[in-house]
Structures are given as C-alpha cells and as structure tokens.
Design a protein around this nucleic acid. Sequence first.
DNA 1: GTCTATAGGTGGATAGAC
DNA 2: GTCTATCCACCTATAGAC
Lengths: 206, 206
Amino acid sequence: MKRSLKNRRRRTRAPAFSDAATAILDVAERLAQTRGYNGFSYADIAARLGVTKASLHYHFPSKEELGRALIERYEAAFAAALDAIDQATGEPRQRLRRYVALYDGVMRNERMCLCGMLAAEHSTLPRAMQGELQRFFDMNERWLAHLLQEGRRSGLFSFRESASGRARIILSALEGAMLVARSYSDPRRFRVAAGHVLDGVGARGR
Amino acid sequence: MKRSLKNRRRRTRAPAFSDAATAILDVAERLAQTRGYNGFSYADIAARLGVTKASLHYHFPSKEELGRALIERYEAAFAAALDAIDQATGEPRQRLRRYVALYDGVMRNERMCLCGMLAAEHSTLPRAMQGELQRFFDMNERWLAHLLQEGRRSGLFSFRESASGRARIILSALEGAMLVARSYSDPRRFRVAAGHVLDGVGARGR
DNA sequence: GTCTATAGGTGGATAGAC
DNA sequence: GTCTATCCACCTATAGAC
C-alpha cells in the first residue's frame, strides 16, 4: 500500500540500441509506416543504408524480432511524448490538442501511425507482435480516458458515454482519419477530421 | 437540360463474371479483407478452391487485374446496398442506422472493409487500384452527405460543420473503428463505437 | 560488424498438352 | 478451362571469410 501511484504507467522501458541498430530501425520504421510490415524487405532497408542484407541479420536475426523492436521503440517514444504533454501543462483542452497534434505530425511526415498500419495487417503478424499492438492501443486509451475524465470533472469537456468509451471513439476516429486521408495523399483531410474530434468534446476553443 | 437527375450516381455497372471467376473473387475477397492485398497469393486461392495456380491466371491474367476486379465488384455491391436502403425507407435516421449496419455486417464476418484495408496498403498498390479506392470513398461520402443534409433540413440531425465535412468524419470513424477492433478480435468494440457515430448527429433514437 | 556466397522457399507469370 | 512443368525474381535466413 505504500508504493507510489504516480507514473505507474511506465512499464515500457526504452531499449538501448547501437547506432547501427538505430539506423536500421529508423529506415524500417519509415518503410513500415508507409508500406506496411508485409510491404518491405531486408533488401529495401539494406539498399537505403548502403549495406548488405546479411549485416542486418547481425542486428536483428529475424524479421519478427525487427518488427517487435519497431513496436517497442515506437510505443516507448509515444509514451515519452504523452509524459511530455502531461508535464508541459495540466490544462485538459490543451493536452488533448497536443495529443491530436502528435498524430498530425505523423501525417505531415507522409506516414501513418505505425500501429494503425500494423492493425490492418493484424492477422498476418507473429503472435508476439499482435500482443504488443494491443498494448499500444491500451496505453493510448488509458491516457485519453484519464484526461477526459479530468476534463469533464472540471466542466471543460462534455460527452455522454463513459470516459473510456469516449477514449476509444477518439482513438478510432484519429486512426481512421489517417487511413482514409492516405488514399487522397492529402494531410489536410486528416487535419479537418481531427479538428472535429476536438469539437466533439467541446475542446476546440482557442 | 432534359436528362433525368434521378439515379445519376450509377456509374458503377456490375460486371458479369463466370461462375469460376466468381468463385475466385469470393475467395480472394475474403483473403484481401482479412490479410490484405499483399498478404495473399494465387497459391492461397488455388489451395482453397482445389485448383492450380495456372488456372487462376486464365480468369485473371495478373494480380493487378484481380485486384481491380475485387474493388469494382465490391463498389458495385456497396452501391446496390445504398440504393436498397434508399428504396426501403426515406426516414433519414433509419437510413443512417442501416448504413452503419452495413459495416457492422462486415465486422461480424470477421472481416474489415475491403477498401479500408487497401487504403493502408495504398502506396504499394498499382495506380489503377489507387484510383478505384478514391472512387469508393467518394461514393460513400456523397451518399452520406446527401443524407445528412436532408436529415438536418428536416430537423432530425444536428451538427455544426458542412454535410460533406460530417460525412468524412463518419466514414473515417467507421473505418477506424474497424481497424482498431481487429487488433482485439472483438466486433463488440466496433459496435459500441458505431453507436456513438449515430449519437454524434442525434440519430440513435429510441 | 560487415562482407560474399548460397540455401531453400515462395512470389507472379507463361508455354503448351489435354 | 484446367492441367503439368518451368521460369525468374525475390524472400528470409545462414555459413564462414575478413
């Protein structure tokens, strides 16, 4: 009963990768976010880095291990971004706006959320990766639900369903907006939809 | 100036396929909706039908042609379903509920919207398929926008943005809800999110 | 750590017999 | 229309030299 309840979310330790491994992950991440896990190969990564396929296997023996590392690193970075938001401001509407801005940044990079992309390929992924996907979405929903609950208590947000229900809606809407916007190669499509997500809880106000 | 304005949407003629071609498309469609376009092969289809890969190429010489046929047939079937809704009832809330039920039926089949799935793989698809994808989403948005406009005029729906803006939000939210629900293999997740889409315009009734 | 070389498998696609 | 047989490109992965 004595353990601190603060920051109990931090279960995702950012793994330490060598410079070479980091370079591989950077390239693989971009490829996975634009083409999907089944849409890129070791050859693609090797070509972009100017090395051979074999050397990649030294750092990531199998593609499954590479895929797991991708999700783990992505989730850790996302968790850090959420912490940064929490520490920058306590104002709920601003925190929600910054959350949406995270996704907007991904789109502006002509990518899609890594985990949204992998969700489409879910049934073709190794079991371990499937489990990590859920953890990512769970983390997002928990963070959002907490924020929504707090904002509603202080009269800033307004919505009928439960906070976690609304969190799911927001997450789904953002992922879906990215998905559809990709077919039009138009990030503005995402931005407009994202704005209405904020309106939905009464959080757009400047 | 004399041409009828009724049914001017019908640009998608349902192509006639032989029995064998239809059987191939049925299997390919299920595979594409569960595993993605890059996630299945001619070998997968052939195995499930008990024929050889070579015979598939007689009906669909290349995978790109197969992919195009998949989207065209899917879009035609969807357009027919929208027409059926329009003819069954003119009541806007009911029509919107039936629209959402279309997507729910897809999820209940343990699939995801074909075009939502393909949207994730967008950048890896042949150009022709990319164009057809947009047409599918455009058709959905036009139908929804028209319905929303009508419902708002009669005081049944309420939303702040333009009808086409709201149509995009609804489409994105439904596609996103399917996407995320897949990671949990839980269609109920979709159904709850879909219900809130209806609430969003005041259409849940009852 | 990175290389060359290669294994063993699967991808889409074609030729030609039946 | 469906088959057998085959092609070549590409996939993930490994062995072993440097």
